[in-house]
Design a protein around this nucleic acid. Structure first.
Length: 152
DNA sequence: GCCAACGTTGGC
DNA sequence: GCCAACGTTGGC
């Protein structure tokens, strides 16, 4: 079992949207990832892996809860849809370019762990999240980092 | 809204 | 295969 961090802009999909899905007993296809490194990480995800849900590009960037991988990587349908903003004309159903996983809601934290707090914690200096220039929207988290954040 | 950092595209 | 131009991410 592995740990991850997945970013989402709350203006498009927030932890509250995720919680609603959870309340309805539904999973969410983590679509729209258009970065090869992030895609490759998703391809290695396994059912049961857990991920931090991170709010990016907002007033208070923070880890706001936990989600779980419930379906391994399969082609992201938005790449084939000309109406979607994630449409990729170079992708075909025979040769899909983009993969995504399904995730399910686990928990929303009453007290998010903010990016500031992560940066202020020396033990978390190794996290890709706080490394200079890192823009990855899907990244691995070590067990040590995972535990450290849970303990905060 | 600014801008640094990074990724992708496409001409050569 | 190089690299300039462009687009995107995301913190501030």
């Amino acid at each position: 079992m592995a740990y991850w961090l997945m970013k989402s802009e709350p203006s498009s999909f927030s932890i509250d949207d995720m919680a609603k899905k959870g309340a309805a007993g539904e999973a969410e296809g983590w679509d729209g990832v258009r970065n090869y490194q992030a895609r490759n990480f998703m391809k290695t995800m396994q059912v049961g892996d857990k991920a931090f849900f991170y709010h990016s590009a907002c007033a208070e960037p923070a880890i706001v809860g936990v989600i779980e991988i419930v379906k391994e990587a399969y082609p992201d349908p938005t790449q084939f849809d000309p109406e979607s903003k994630y449409y990729d004309p170079k992708a075909t159903t025979d040769k899909p370019r983009w993969q995504h996983v399904d995730v399910a809601f686990v928990e929303k934290w009453e007290k998010p762990i903010t990016l500031k707090q992560v940066k202020a914690n020396e033990k978390l200096a190794t996290m890709k999240l706080v490394q200079k220039g890192s823009r990855l929207s899907v990244m691995p988290v070590t067990q040590r980092e995972w535990q450290e954040i849970l303990s905060m």
